[in-house]
Design a binder for these strands. Structure first.
Lengths: 186, 186
DNA sequence: TCACACATGTAACACGTTACATGATTTG
DNA sequence: CAAATCATGTAACGTGTTACATGTGTGA
């Protein structure tokens, strides 16, 4: 039930339409929460009905009108109490690890290819996070940024994403090396 | 649609009843796939209907009878083709990171407590994985194990889990230090 | 005797995914 | 001129969560 809160948290970055939120989820929030546009539209409607966000229609020339949503005071309140509620233990679900678990009864070459693809993805994601980081830091170093910035949340979650991908890169590379060595011995 | 494959992969460890599978998911598979008992019962029934697993009733004295499931040849075949299909990109969903993202508008002390709880959980999980690892290695070192073992999948996924938790420990500790330093400066 | 482990399930609901539908404008 | 981007949505289906229901055996 926390897509709701991910949406509220994303709106802290500024008002947005469903479409814009979808973009935002693809970049700065994807790191720890993913959602399809459809989920976002559905969730925004519900949030509006319960008064946690307020939508207004912005008319646009040369483009379809859009509905832009803002956090309401009760939305901010909800976010606040959410941060204070106990978090339920996170449930992992990773397709690639299922394949790796089954590698001995499966198609080993295909699993190696999947690992290589994951490695490539992780490199790309890391590069994306590094760009975001440079944008945030804007020339300052980390210590300076942490002292001056009024919001540190987005920076800290971004660091989580970076480290996660760095570890991913190391791990996939190691596993590939192990599988390739074994494949060579047969 | 890959709970199905996680179940098939878990059955590679040996035949199991729904209840036993639930236990298995809590230990060796939880690392990369989680499921409630209800999901498993539902999935096993469907897998049986489609012939990927076969169930037989094992009568027990002093205990309720149980239905034990085995992979059928077509279940093995399905696992094999699954490993060869392209994996869809994994979707992350982490409550704690949502809280951290919103920390500046939320209850900072509560978020720090949640981080501390995660740190503690990560340490426990890591200790659990280390025990599993010792059981698998059974006195041998890694290189030896990898040469001798006929299944390396479970070991490699376990290593993934270990590293993930190690990184989690480092990251939560660092974030806590940063938040505490800031809290001190106010 | 009380809690926990064994063992299986139903029902209802919440959440997530996929496919489809529509249509204008900007960029290459 | 085609493709990508902006912009919003419906419908159907698949997956995951929560609460409840039931009953025996084992260990502290």
């Amino acid at each position: 039930m926390s897509l709701r809160h991910a949406v509220l948290a994303a709106l802290l970055e500024g008002d947005a339409s469903g479409y814009q939120l979808a973009k935002r989820f693809d970049v700065s929030v994807a790191n720890f929460w993913s959602a399809t546009p459809q989920q976002l539209y559905r969730e925004l409607e519900q949030l509006e009905r319960t008064g946690l966000v307020a939508g207004r229609v912005v008319e646009q020339r040369r483009r379809p009108n859009k509905r832009v949503f803002t956090l309401t005071p009760s939305g901010r309140e909800e976010l606040r109490t959410f941060t204070a509620r106990p978090a339920r233990p996170t449930a992992m679900r990773d397709d690639l690890l299922v394949k790796l678990q089954a590698v001995d009864a499966g198609d080993e070459r295909a699993v190696r290819q999947a690992l290589a693809a994951r490695l490539e993805q992780a490199r790309e994601k890391l590069a994306g996070y590094d760009r975001l980081r440079d944008d945030l830091l804007d020339g300052r170093d980390e210590a300076e940024y942490l002292r001056e910035a009024d919001r540190v949340g987005p920076y800290l979650t971004l660091m989580g994403g970076r480290r996660y991908e760095q570890e991913n890169i190391r791990w996939t590379a190691d596993v590939l090396a192990i599988l390739e060595r074994r494949a060579g011995n047969r």
